[in-house]
Design a protein around this nucleic acid. Sequence first.
DNA 1: ACCCGCGGGACGGCCCGTTATT
DNA 2: AATAACGGGCCGTCCCGCGGGT
Lengths: 189, 189, 189, 189
Amino acid sequence: MARQSDSKAKTIAAAAQLFRQQGYHGTALHDILGAGGSPRGSLYFHFPKGKEEIGEAALGFVAERVREGIARAAEASDSAESFLVRVASHMGAELEQSGFKEGCPVAGVAVDAAAQSAVLGAAAGAAFQLWEREIGLGLERFGMAAGKAERVATMVLSQLEGALLLSRTYRSLEPIHRAGEALRLLASL
Amino acid sequence: MARQSDSKAKTIAAAAQLFRQQGYHGTALHDILGAGGSPRGSLYFHFPKGKEEIGEAALGFVAERVREGIARAAEASDSAESFLVRVASHMGAELEQSGFKEGCPVAGVAVDAAAQSAVLGAAAGAAFQLWEREIGLGLERFGMAAGKAERVATMVLSQLEGALLLSRTYRSLEPIHRAGEALRLLASL
Amino acid sequence: MARQSDSKAKTIAAAAQLFRQQGYHGTALHDILGAGGSPRGSLYFHFPKGKEEIGEAALGFVAERVREGIARAAEASDSAESFLVRVASHMGAELEQSGFKEGCPVAGVAVDAAAQSAVLGAAAGAAFQLWEREIGLGLERFGMAAGKAERVATMVLSQLEGALLLSRTYRSLEPIHRAGEALRLLASL
Amino acid sequence: MARQSDSKAKTIAAAAQLFRQQGYHGTALHDILGAGGSPRGSLYFHFPKGKEEIGEAALGFVAERVREGIARAAEASDSAESFLVRVASHMGAELEQSGFKEGCPVAGVAVDAAAQSAVLGAAAGAAFQLWEREIGLGLERFGMAAGKAERVATMVLSQLEGALLLSRTYRSLEPIHRAGEALRLLASL
DNA sequence: ACCCGCGGGACGGCCCGTTATT
DNA sequence: AATAACGGGCCGTCCCGCGGGT
């Protein structure tokens, strides 16, 4: 039992990291297995539907991890502004630490496979919506009206995703820094 | 051979469209060739370096096409606000027309391959910078100071890229519409 | 799928025969698989390093087979002369039976690939040395001093390899017959 | 006129060298063109029958070059023994100079393609026979009877070809040195 | 009359995502 | 839960003509 979930969890974590670096199609099952330490044949025991199911699980895994990060940032902040900036700088730090290789873990699957696979598309959408909701909650926490918070949350997430993409491509934190400025504006709406 | 550029240009255009829908690794050369009407071996003549060179060419192609679109939007507008909104709604229209399949043509390869291939990474970065510059130019045209325009342009592009990603994933224009709101804010900075 | 070695051994044998007829580069993996009755993908399982590994295995396989043939010839003979002639005529018979298509199974890859691939070169060299040693052992068996036997064995193998090449090219056993004469001389050294 | 034959001759010489190093099938037309400095399309002007015709021409070219070498060696020698040893050591020197890459230029084609292509097989056979004849002539020059010289010439060529193959594979001149010993024996027959 | 840029099908080998068997 | 085996398909590039230049 413990062994089982350990191996499965490791595989999911490895997949998430690789999808984030190389996209969904750019990542071979072989690499995931190698990174996760699992033997080759046992994969279809844990994930009977194959790669797509791994992708779905990886999406769910990172979705929750990031959601927690957003929630923690909200708790640790004392204003909408500092909340959003904290989220942005956390993303920037992760990106920089990975040598500008690891962008948004959901984008790597969404861009590659969302248009082809219904289940992957749904999972990616669910992840983004989970984050939107958590951002909206954070905004409400600092006094923003619920309806407005929902709309602003979308803008915030868009800004963050775009800045992450630009920063990764440029291999520079500048877009994320500038996104902080935009976020402050959005927070004061 | 008068029809030199015909086949090559068709291949590049087909590649650009497919990368945009399925990402770089999700697109097989076979599909590009099929869509472009070219046989397999001609490719080696036009693009001796293979798929990577096609990717580079496709990136250059769309970079310029989008840049022109931005420039035209600036010319057709009478304020920074209407300029940016026009760009956003143009993107939204394209996305909707394609059945929410075609997102940003650069993101499709940036996410997949920017971290792996130096030349693809550079080409993607060049495309984004080209657009940033053109947006900045448009902003200056309506009175924004150069230094500020440059910074705001980055935020604008981030917002657009993120909104495009979200809209495509959700299969809904809502994020792009909300991005319009954010853009108005940025324009009035 | 318990029948582990069946398919692999068949593939190796088929490869050895084809390399011998068409050389290393002249033989497509497709042909080897076809001749061995194996499906495409199993190959990557049995030979993770690809064609080179098949070549290596094929070389090892024929090296041992031929070595056994030499040893048997020595046992069946009562003089150095009859030993060497027996080896030569065995080679000639094989060549003739195949319609002058199958020469030395090692030469086919040594000529093609020894200069390019270190592992293939080493395997080919090992095969030749194995045969030299076995020939030398046979010579010692009939009274030749060890040191001389070693030197003469090299000459014998050279003579045999060269005669095989000539006979195959001419499509005539004549060179091998004449080699028999040279071998008798060498045996009486 | 002068331009024409120059380009063609260069191509043939380049092909001969490459076939010698990598075999017939291991050598791509692309490499030959590159080494010969010829443009791609002009190849089928000079060699309408394609690669096979290049192979044939290359075989004819080296056949004559080597024949001349043998004839010169005969002229420069004062005994059958020194003649044969001179030929062997010349071969050894060439092999060593090339870093043990360039073996017999005919063997590279004969092993690969002689069994498949009638014209290549014939050309390879013709080359070997030309050499045999020249060796026989040399032997007669030093007093050997014509009938015997013909038979011994075959043994000599076999010994040389085999030794060359072994030396190249081992990356050591030893087999060629030992062949010299065998050749002395043959000369004194 | 000679030359060659350009384009074209066809495999080449590699390896991918997956399924039987135990 | 894991070994052994499987087709399929990807990317590279190979060997080759067509038709315009010089």
